[in-house]
Design a protein around this nucleic acid. Structure first.
Lengths: 162, 162
DNA sequence: TAAGATTGATTGCTCAATCTTT
DNA sequence: AAAGATTGAGCAATCAATCTTA
């Protein structure tokens, strides 16, 4: 084995370790936050993510099933069922898009708005404790900029899912 | 609403956005890497993670089911089934610990060692393209240190899973 | 022909209960 | 009692096929 092969092996091991840290930390933090939401507000983290996106959508340009699926990294089938459950729970409604009748728009109900406001506070507090609090301002900036680079590339690579 | 309430609301929104980026980026990258491994080596990302941990374990202090579950953020039941599949596939073997007969040790088979070496190369290359490559050295260092802080706290918070 | 959404079949996880060993 | 591991039940995701509209 040559020196350069050895060096690249070491670099590879470090990269694998760093990436493992990214996945592991994200997974652990999601579990912590999701449990807190579930316990205090009785709603899954996935449903809350949908509420946030639907709630943030411009009234003149609402969210569609496909856009939600892409943003949330779910297959379209997965999103269909998630929204099914949310409709049944009374948080959102579905209605065919007037401009493209293949597409379904997802809208927040009154109950959905209330729930969103409630969960947002709990979620912000939880993230303050477990995510923002432990980091310095510089660390947060650095984290944000690194993730931005990676996410841009990853989105390009993935495109739509199914 | 007072100024300080407004400020804390804005801070909360930013925190939620940043955290969303962490989860989303991690999820997208995992999907990309997992697909590449699956396609080129015919093994799931979860199985590869087990292979790495079992392969890295000291021969005098092998991995147990519980330690694997904790490191990989799976419930013990989930790990039992994952290792079941890996035993069936011939990558690892299970054997009761001689020092504590409640505990099961997980060991790499010959086939598991070969597979590990094979996947490691593919994985390193994929991560070079999608993870390490896009970042500057400074960004990688910053990312690592921020994640280290978060992970330490998260591990404390989580403890064992079930 | 392709895009958006849904459905059926399957997979793999969590949760809770259980069994064995400490 | 408590810890480590496994099992049964249930849930939510993926994949592939299908239906409708563009």
């Amino acid at each position: 084995m040559t020196v350069s092969e050895l060096e690249s092996d070491v670099a590879g091991e470090i990269t694998i370790r760093d990436f493992g840290m990214l996945l592991g930390t994200a997974s652990r933090l999601e579990r912590i936050a999701a449990k807190e939401i579930e316990r205090e507000c009785g709603i899954s983290h996935a449903m809350f993510e949908v509420l946030m996106r639907v709630g943030a959508a411009d009234h003149t340009c609402p969210q569609t099933m496909g856009r939600l699926a892409c943003d949330m990294i779910l297959t379209s089938g997965g999103m269909t069922r998630l929204v099914d459950r949310m409709v049944k729970a009374g948080y959102v409604s579905r209605t065919p898009s007037p401009t493209d009748r293949r597409s379904q728009l997802v809208l927040l109900t009154e109950a959905g708005e209330h729930k969103l406001a409630e969960v947002k506070d709990v979620y912000s507090a939880a993230l303050g404790r477990h995510f923002a609090g432990p980091l310095s301002a510089a660390q947060r900036d650095a984290l944000r900029s690194a993730l931005q680079v990676l996410d841009d590339k990853a989105r390009l690579e993935l495109g739509g899912l199914g």
